[in-house]
Design a protein around this nucleic acid. Structure first.
Length: 147
DNA sequence: TAAACTGTCCCGC
DNA sequence: GCGGGACAGTTTA
């Protein structure tokens, strides 16, 4: 299947997505847009019009990928909620340090909602910019409070 | 407040 | 191929 690359705006950033059908291979954040469409589910999610990215599948969450057991726990965090690195690690039978590393290496942020994983006494980190993480958490909590 | 712990990746040899 | 260091955190003393 042909892989499509596209982007859509999110605040001061562009979310760049490489995808084919309902399978997403890669998501990155950049100040430079990418010519092409992003998946409609992602566009709606970033606009706050949708809370559900489940029609899309992340290539990184498929069993056998290095951190799939950690990503599975991250995927179970509901929209508008957060969990700590320690909680995720405990549920996945791993260590907090590993949970942080798995989030850093996450090739598909948004789909695997690593922005919902925060540190015990702070927001934790985010690549390339923790500002994006704050915006995503803020978006979800505002959208959630409408319901 | 500092140090130990954790598991994987990456780079240099 | 192997060893050491880095890394988006937590816990304990």
């Amino acid at each position: 299947m042909e892989i499509i690359s596209g982007s859509c705006r999110f605040g001061l950033w562009f979310v760049r997505v490489w995808w084919s059908g309902n399978l997403v291979w890669n998501v990155t954040f950049s100040h430079q847009p990418l010519g092409g469409p992003a998946p409609p589910e992602v566009v709606k999610f970033l606009a706050g019009h949708s809370t559900d990215l489940s029609p899309l599948r992340s290539a990184a969450a498929t069993p056998g990928s290095p951190y799939s057991h950690i990503y599975r726990e991250v995927l179970s965090i509901p929209y508008g909620s957060t969990a700590t690195y320690g909680e995720i690690a405990r549920r996945a039978g791993s260590s907090p340090r590993m949970a942080g590393l798995a989030m850093k290496r996450n090739p598909t942020p948004l789909l695997i909602p690593c922005h919902r994983v925060v540190s015990q006494n702070g927001i934790g980190g985010f690549t390339p910019d923790v500002e994006i993480k704050k915006m995503l958490i803020d978006l979800e909590q505002k959208r959630k409070s409408y319901n």
